[in-house]
Design a protein around this nucleic acid. Structure first.
Length: 1118
RNA sequence: GGGCGAUUAGCUCAGUUGGUAGAGCGUCACGCUUACACCGUGAAUGUCGGGGGUUCGAGCCCCUCAUCGCCCACCA
């Protein structure tokens, strides 16, 4: 420490300088390696420390952290810091997530806005390079934010889900799954994002109501032999997406409309039986409508059903295609026209119908960019699905007289699925996808939670986890993106002919097996282990290769290069490829072997990358070096706790468990803590896009990291999300402007007070240059006032302590200073030590059970009320008494020391700042030689000091109740003073009537009554009498009622006192009344437990006594 | 439609095994008492969302309704 140094002897400011403390100590901790965990680290006694590991939920490199992240990471830091102090080999593994779609989308959007370029302009390489730049920038910012809030991550082990180590793990996992047959490629209907041109998972889709229409179209019936005279000539269908009709493959009608009506009616009847009177009206109406509809529609639908069974065809307008009328239960007679068009390639439910009627096939009418493809008549090709194509289809249907805009269009609100990433509408789309089979994997992860190997806190979230996994839906893992782990699969066509038919079958089989053999030989010769790849025949003329070894990429690329350059020669039929390649100088035997087969298309790597969650799933072991059997992996896996928010229980937590079990054979963590979510003042999730996000650094700057952390911990309750109304702080005049739904979307705001404009966080992405030049208004919340006040209180309590301890080391050497172990402790000393022991135990327990709010509240109350309000106030008096000074110093130093340790996980900077100062004046802060607190290396920083252990021998329930008597009497004296409006500077006298034992206890406290209430006691005990003119109060002591009589002869305010007494009596009388009622109730007396009854009786007698004496006092006043 | 959570002082939230309700902020009154005015002392403020039930006794247990939020499913 140089110019930044602190000296306990110097003047300390009366306000805690959070900025200075943060600047000073984080650097020191990091440089000294306190956050670094080595496998096999030993404690002072030479024993290997037990591991305690947390892997960070890696923040997305999409953008900077918000308050939710600060919350999540503060809780983790509290755990890791406490465990480190408890002597665990505590590892907090940090890192960031590449967040495939999200990051690519952000960079692409930026690229478009700033340079009007699309990703296709840059190409794969170019775009990825841009994204890496983005990543570098935001990773730096994120790490900076984490450090600013004090997170004690092991930065030497920083990982990124797309770095080499993680890539290795991803590849190994994919390969193993592939080899196990758990990965397959299938056609599936996916949620297609036409903007990003990628599939997104169900979890990344949100529904948004938009105004739309319900369109009714008529399809003409083909009047061939199967059609009978008199039957309908048209079938009407309804749709919200008219353009998809071009991909229709059928129209369905229910196979048994009568039964379907029966069923719906029965359900309705059941509902009515259970309904309340209020609900019955609408239900009745519904039933009537249904009955009417049945009468009107049933014959018609049955006719259609018969037509369907006969195989009647329909003419699909605009396409010239004929499609069948089919019978399928998907058609609901009670809805719309009772008929439904079937578009298997573009609708989830229709796809399911298609599965039941495979002969229908599926017609894909869409290009990846959301335009119509050449599967539709030429005039529609290239039109946009839900805009131009829709308009064209509607216009043409109208022209054909099959649609009447007056009659056949209903207004309707439609819940349209949108991509969470691009915020554009989703199109259901039939595409080739890679899937992971979930049956066994999901089961293994379910078992781990069911049998308790993984414990989820709060327990109720176990249900979310199990319900989701229980569906065992296969996991689509491919993403049509460039930013991510590319799928390590290649395909090749192995026929020399290019045509496949029966005639060539034998030849193809031969070529295929030749190809597999040659490729195997080649890769092996390239030094790739035979068990690091698999090659399979997937079709008679096609092979697929998957490899876990990164070098395979190079080997195959080299091969491809040769192929490309010698393609012309290679196409000669019948000529072995190797004979050509051998002509190439330096071409090795091994390489040429791979060309001893013929092909019409060479090895091509899969274009898709893996879902982000695939790499996230491996996070607990990939970060530790798996598949390498590193010392870290052995020492720190399985990890201990995972701290996250509930929205990724399924996406992330479940997948980590199954991946951990699959790769490691062991669960990735034994405990999962799900913390509440931070919401804004309207109860909405905070997000950048809503404009209600808070940058934790704004809070750090204004309130300090300690206040931020303590405030967050204080709010981490079990069931309640954290609601946090936020405000803009005007950068000109510092006045606060409440954030509203309206102003949070603004780029610039004018201050209510000074009228000057400032920019909001929105300006960064949406503002003009002029807006961006304005000073920025920070977003803050007064929720953090609590933390700031608390920190300041702690600072000042510490300042007081340090001032009074400044001569401590000197007094230590003086004769007569009380030695360790022989301390003549006063009541308040013993009380404080008892409270400390209790609180130490409770806080430790609370943090270990993830009850952060409880821990924070306990410490808050102990530090503020017990330590400051009572102990410090009382010690003030004792410092003036030479024979008491030494003891008070010792206890003060000891308790402050313990308090700093207990608070350090929540309030790291302030505690370190004070710890350093305390160390300068008091080296030994123990109460006994054995319990010496600060010693050796641990004394250097509170960060590595030992976590306090509750000293059970100090817990003394009797002392605590006795002390409560003192507090009660003091409270009564103060209250009486106030009631009489006695100025604080005025000294008063009082008497206390109580039993002998209580008197004995209270009497020695006399100085404190003087000190804390400017009151002198004239008499104590059963014989004490009230002064002539008194204001009196009664409190309940541990041994019965205690009367407090304040001499008010000099101050008497009769009216005020009468009023006070009358009110008091009224209150007690109400109490007596309810107790009398209770006690006269035979049921209560006979059935309630005897001790409860007895207690009530005593209370009744006591309260009656109180009323009597109050009435007497009242009488005396006239 | 299914599941989960919430509903307690003006605001934000605690409330331990059922025994006539607590904190912080805000408000009011009095104090710059030699650590702290980001402080101290005191005060006021509640039909514990509505209704029913179990119990001698319910903020807490059970049923039900209402409102809000989240998750899942569904929506031609």
């Amino acid at each position: 420490m140089s110019d930044d140094s602190l000296s306990a002897g110097g003047e300390l400011p009366s306000q805690y300088d959070h900025e200075g403390a943060q600047r000073r100590w984080y650097k020191v901790w990091e440089e000294r390696g306190y956050f670094h965990a080595e496998p096999g680290a030993k404690d002072a006694a030479g024993n290997v420390k037990p591991p305690y590991t947390i892997v960070i939920p890696p923040p997305n490199v999409t953008g900077a952290l918000h308050l939710g992240h600060a919350f999540n990471n503060t809780l983790q830091d509290i755990l890791i810091r406490m465990k480190r102090m408890q002597g665990f080999n505590a590892l907090w593994m940090p890192g960031t997530d590449h967040a495939g779609i999200a990051t690519q989308a952000v960079v692409e959007r930026r690229l478009l806005e700033e340079q009007k370029l699309s990703r296709h302009d840059l190409g794969r390489e170019g775009l990825i390079e841009k994204i890496w730049e983005w990543k570098a920038q935001y990773e730096k910012r994120i790490i900076g934010q984490l450090k600013q809030i004090g997170c004690s991550c092991d930065w030497e082990r920083l990982r990124f889900t797309l770095d080499e180590t993680c890539a290795r793990a991803v590849r190994e996992t994919f390969f193993n799954l592939f080899k196990d047959g758990k990965i397959y490629r299938g056609k599936r209907l996916v949620n297609w994002d036409t903007y990003l041109q990628t599939a997104v998972s169900d979890d990344e889709v949100f529904k948004e109501p938009v105004k739309g229409h319900f369109w009714h179209f008529k399809y003409p019936v083909v009047k061939d032999a199967k059609w009978k005279q008199g039957e309908p000539e048209f079938v009407t269908i309804a749709t919200t997406r008219p353009e998809t009709m071009l991909g229709d493959t059928a129209v369905a009608v229910h196979p048994d409309p009568a039964a379907a009506f029966d069923k719906v009616q029965a359900e309705l009847r059941e509902k009515m039986l259970a309904a309340t009177d209020k609900e019955r009206g609408p239900l009745n109406e519904q039933a009537d409508l249904l009955l009417e509809r049945r009468a009107r529609m049933l014959p018609h639908l049955e006719t259609l059903r018969d037509m369907a069974n006969r195989g009647v065809m329909l003419e699909l307008p605009l396409t010239g295609r004929q499609i069948p009328l089919i019978a399928d239960e998907w058609a609901k007679p009670e809805l719309g026209s009772g008929c439904v068009k079937i578009t298997p390639a573009h609708d989830e439910n229709d796809y399911a119908v298609g599965q039941r009627h495979p002969e229908l096939g599926a017609i894909n009418i869409m290009n990846p960019d959301g335009t119509l493809n050449d599967g539709v008549p030429e005039k529609y090709c290239g039109l946009k699905m839900h805009t131009t194509a829709r308009a064209a289809v509607i216009a043409d249907m109208e022209a054909l007289g099959l649609f009447d805009p007056e009659k056949d269009r209903e207004d309707r609100e439609i819940e349209l699925p949108h991509s969470d990433r691009s915020k554009t509408p989703i199109e259901p789309y039939l595409a080739d996808q890679w899937f992971v089979k979930m049956d066994e994997l999901a089961q293994s992860a379910m078992d781990a939670v069911s049998d308790g190997r993984v414990k989820i806190t709060p327990e109720r979230y176990g249900k979310t986890y199990l319900d989701w996994l229980g569906e065992k839906r296969d996991w689509p893992v491919g993403r049509q993106l460039w930013w991510g782990h590319r799928i390590p699969v290649w395909e090749a066509i192995t026929t020399s002919v290019g045509i496949v038919d029966e005639h060539y079958k034998a030849k193809e089989a031969k070529e295929q097996s030749d190809a597999i053999a040659a490729l195997t030989k080649y890769l092996t010769a390239c030094g790739i282990s035979a068990d690091a790849f698999v090659i399979e025949a997937i079709e008679p003329w096609k092979i697929r290769l998957c490899s876990s070894d990164k070098r395979t990429d190079d080997a195959l690329n080299a091969l491809k290069e040769f192929h490309d350059s010698y393609k012309m020669k290679l196409v000669k039929p019948g000529q072995p490829t190797s004979s050509v390649l051998r002509e190439v100088p330096g071409f090795e035997e091994a390489t040429s072997a791979a060309f001893d087969f013929h092909f019409s298309d060479f090895l091509k790597q899969e274009e898709d990358v893996l879902d982000t969650w695939f790499s996230s799933a491996l996070w607990p072991h990939s970060t530790l070096g798996w598949p390498e059997q590193t010392p870290e992996l052995k020492a720190f896996y399985p990890t201990t706790a995972l701290v996250t928010s509930r929205d990724i229980i399924t996406l992330w937590v479940a997948r980590m468990v199954l991946a951990g079990l699959y790769n490691m054979g062991e669960v990735p963590f034994s405990s999962v803590y799900i913390h509440p979510k931070i919401l804004d003042g309207y109860g909405e999730t905070m997000s950048k896009s809503k404009g209600n996000g808070v940058d934790p650094l704004d809070v750090v700057e204004k309130f300090g990291a300690d206040a931020l952390r303590f405030g967050l911990a204080y709010l981490a309750t079990e069931t309640q999300d954290v609601r946090m109304p936020v405000e803009f702080e005007c950068p000109h005049c510092q006045s606060l402007i409440a954030q509203t739904k309206k102003n949070r979307t603004l780029v610039r705001i004018e201050c209510d007070k000074c009228g000057k404009p400032f920019r909001t966080q929105w300006a960064e992405s949406h503002g003009t240059a002029e807006d961006q030049a304005l000073p920025r208004g920070a977003v803050v919340s007064d929720r953090f006032e609590l933390g700031r006040r608390f920190c300041n209180k702690l600072w000042n309590a510490s300042r007081f302590s340090l001032m009074n301890l400044s001569d401590y080391n000197k007094t230590a050497s003086e004769p007569g200073r009380p030695g360790p172990g022989a301390l003549d402790l006063t009541l308040e000393d013993r009380w404080l030590l008892s409270r400390l022991a209790t609180v130490t135990g409770e806080v430790t327990e609370a943090i270990e059970a993830y009850r952060f709010a409880d821990a924070a509240r306990l410490l808050y109350a102990f530090a503020w009320n017990d330590f400051c309000d009572y102990y410090v106030e009382m010690t003030k008096a004792r410092f003036g008494v030479p024979e008491q000074r030494g003891i008070a110093q010792r206890v003060l130093a000891h308790v402050l020391d313990a308090l700093l340790r207990l608070l350090h996980p929540m309030v790291p900077f302030l505690t370190e700042e004070v710890w350093q100062l305390l160390g300068q004046v008091v080296e030994d802060r123990g109460l006994t030689p054995a319990g010496s607190h600060a010693s050796g290396a641990a004394a250097v920083s509170v960060c590595i000091a030992d976590w306090p252990v509750a000293d059970a021998s100090r817990i003394d329930a009797t002392i605590e109740t006795q002390f409560a008597d003192f507090q009660a009497v003091l409270g009564a004296v103060r209250e009486l003073r106030m009631g009489q409006n006695i100025a604080p500077r005025e000294a008063v006298e009082f008497t206390v009537r109580c039993d002998e034992a209580t008197a004995k206890l209270l009497e020695p406290m006399a100085p404190y009554f003087l000190q804390m209430a400017k009151a002198t006691a004239l008499a104590w005990g059963p014989k004490a009498v009230a002064p002539e003119t008194a204001a009196s109060s009664q409190v309940t002591g541990a041994r019965g009622p205690i009367e407090v009589h304040l001499d008010v002869s000099r101050f008497i305010d009769v009216d005020a006192e009468k009023k006070r007494l009358a009110k008091q009596i009224e209150q007690w009388e109400g109490f007596v009344k309810s107790m009398e009622a209770k006690l006269s109730n035979d049921n209560f007396v006979s059935r309630a437990p005897a001790d409860v009854v007895q207690q009530q009786r005593e209370k009744l007698v006591e309260t009656r006594g109180l009323i009597e004496s109050a009435q007497a006092a009242l009488k005396k006043l006239g």
